[in-house]
Write a protein that binds this DNA or RNA. Structure first.
Lengths: 344, 344
DNA sequence: ATTTAGCACTCGGATAAAACGAGTGCTAAC
DNA sequence: GTTAGCACTCGTTTTATCCGAGTGCTAAAT
């Protein structure tokens, strides 16, 4: 459907526009080394490309800008592998070489590097720790009315919530409950804790604790999984450097959206194993109309546990960003696996 | 030095400008109910006020805008107490009425309400938990190379870090260390833990643990206080609604500054017991040149443990914000005291 | 001695007209 | 099929003009 020359021209226009953010004219394309045709020829092809919906004009006698469809084609068919520059490589290396002890630390670092190397904003979800297994639970009373439940998993993840203490609980029972929980629930994945509570612990509890109903619901509360996954951002303010966001209203819409954690979550969560690229209006949310989002999952022991992503203007350096997200999701998975493996 | 009339006119101008964000002319002042003089009279006084440095012109024939000095005078001498509106009152009430179980939750809520009621951005530091006392420490090994140290205080605050395990540590010694620490350090304030480690624990450790040097430095690491205090923001994007921030560059400077946690910290930390108001360039940092910051400490058991603050344009609704910050710092202190008191 | 009315003047902002130029589409020649 | 030539389009920039809110000053009124 498109001739090779048309593809070449389209590619040139896209890459020029990604660079300059200005409508691209036939003359400037003709000056490139890879292009040997005259402006007039290019104009003809441009007209065709416009007819096919790959190019747009900002007004009747302006240069062309790539359409969303063009970016899609570019990403799907025209993209060359990207070679990282020396300092970029160093930056990435140092992330994975460092002595990282905690998953959350690794995730935050990744968000930082992503945004630093791209000058766009990065979003990192997770890691979900639902799969990791209970290593130890500790319930520490804080005064008469409350207690802190601390859960430590085999991945070194610590979760804690404060729970109201039922007044009927007798002295010493708390310790007893803790012992029972540790004995019965150790090694159970977090997401199964509540279920296991009923299947494994309930009856034992009945035997040892006086007001067993209250104790059970108290324990259930203590094991409740934290409702929201964590979201980390990096370089939000990078977006303000992009010319497409010199308009405050647009920036506001974007930044406000990013505060809505559940929305961001819905948006990035459907990233299937591998990489997802959403260009412009492919993002359902209106505030992302002029943005592209590139996201990839990272995993622990082969199972996806989180998502890393980049948000930038549709005019994004796709080749660089795609490589980078790819690389980092892979590298982050490795780091997490290393952290995890120390358990065995 | 200033006549009553001049003060009245200055106040009118300031309040008008806070409302409108536009230079104020003599005519519009003369129309106010509280003003009985003619525009010409007002113009004379305006000229005087300008000479004294309380008013400025944007150009030679424009209306006047208040100077930084004017805001200072306004805040120090002209401010009337603010009556909260019905919904505002409800909002505040609901914060302090809710069933809050954790200090951090209370603090986050406060940040939210602050920004919601002011349409500026809120910053909350802390709470510092240095004063609270160790209730329990648990060291859980994660594989052969690392362990998670979990510290629970008598205020229900949980802190955890992952620490590399010294390879020389023998089986069972970790448990022993944990026991010793719990026995010897319970009730010690967090900020004294490291010191107490040496004075109370060192010798005991020497007696029971084989490679005592490694164990000591490991323990020291486990008790290390987390270096950065927490910062919570609320309604950062509110700032984008203010006309003084319709310029993207200014917004960027501001948002970037807010990412620099240590700078924000330095900026708000010197809030002395009570309230601090910094207007425009009274903030040393250039990015806050056009901002005012109103901050107050909140406390736990009478000792200041954190700071709440509001950042807005110099043209800020001082009377409302000041009351609000006052109220909320007071209320937050009460909530924290309640949380704390449950221990006794 | 103040206060006020009157008036000339200033200057930013809005509106209109003109000059500019990057870029196009089309036609005719290569 | 490709390219040179050229008239045309239209956003941007520049220049000129007008408008009006607001001032400062002077002289009259209180």
């Amino acid at each position: 459907m498109l001739t090779d020359r048309q593809l070449l021209i389209l590619q040139s226009i896209i890459e020029d526009y990604i660079q300059s953010a200005e409508p691209v004219g036939s003359r400037s394309i003709s000056k490139k080394n890879s292009i040997t045709f005259s402006p007039a020829t290019i104009r003809n092809d441009m007209a065709d490309l416009e007819e096919f919906g790959f190019l747009e004009k900002t007004h009747s006698s302006s240069g062309r800008i790539p359409s969303q469809k063009a970016y899609r084609l570019y990403v799907d068919r025209l993209l060359l592998p990207y070679r990282f520059s020396e300092p970029e490589m160093n930056n990435i290396q140092s992330l994975f070489a460092g002595k990282i002890l905690e998953a959350e630390e690794a995730v935050k670092e990744t968000a930082g590097i992503l945004s630093e190397l791209t000058s766009y904003a990065s979003i990192v979800l997770g890691p979900e720790m639902f799969e990791s297994r209970l290593r130890q639970i500790q319930i520490v009373p804080i005064g008469k009315e409350a207690a802190v439940a601390v859960i430590v998993t085999d991945t070194g993840y610590v979760e804690n919530h404060t729970v109201a203490l039922p007044p009927t609980l007798e002295a010493g029972e708390l310790e007893q409950i803790t012992n029972i929980l540790n004995e019965r629930l150790r090694g159970i994945p977090l997401y199964q804790l509540q279920r296991a509570l009923f299947s494994e612990v309930r009856d034992v509890l009945k035997r040892y604790v006086f007001n067993y109903e209250a104790a059970l619901s108290f324990t259930e509360e203590a094991l409740r999984k934290s409702r929201h996954e964590k979201i980390f951002y990096g370089g939000k303010t990078n977006l303000l450097n992009q010319p497409e966001f010199k308009d405050v209203d647009r920036v506001r819409a974007l930044l406000e959206l990013m505060e809505e954690e559940h929305l961001i979550h819905e948006l990035l969560k459907p990233t299937i194993n591998g990489m997802t690229i959403r260009i412009g209006q492919e993002n359902t949310n209106e505030a992302f109309e002029h943005c592209s989002i590139i996201s990839a999952t990272y995993s622990l022991a082969g199972k996806p546990v989180g998502t890393i992503g980049i948000v930038g203007p549709t005019r994004m350096e796709y080749q660089k960003v795609i490589s980078l997200v790819n690389h980092l999701s892979y590298g982050l998975s490795n780091v997490l696996d290393d952290l995890y493996r120390r358990d065995s």
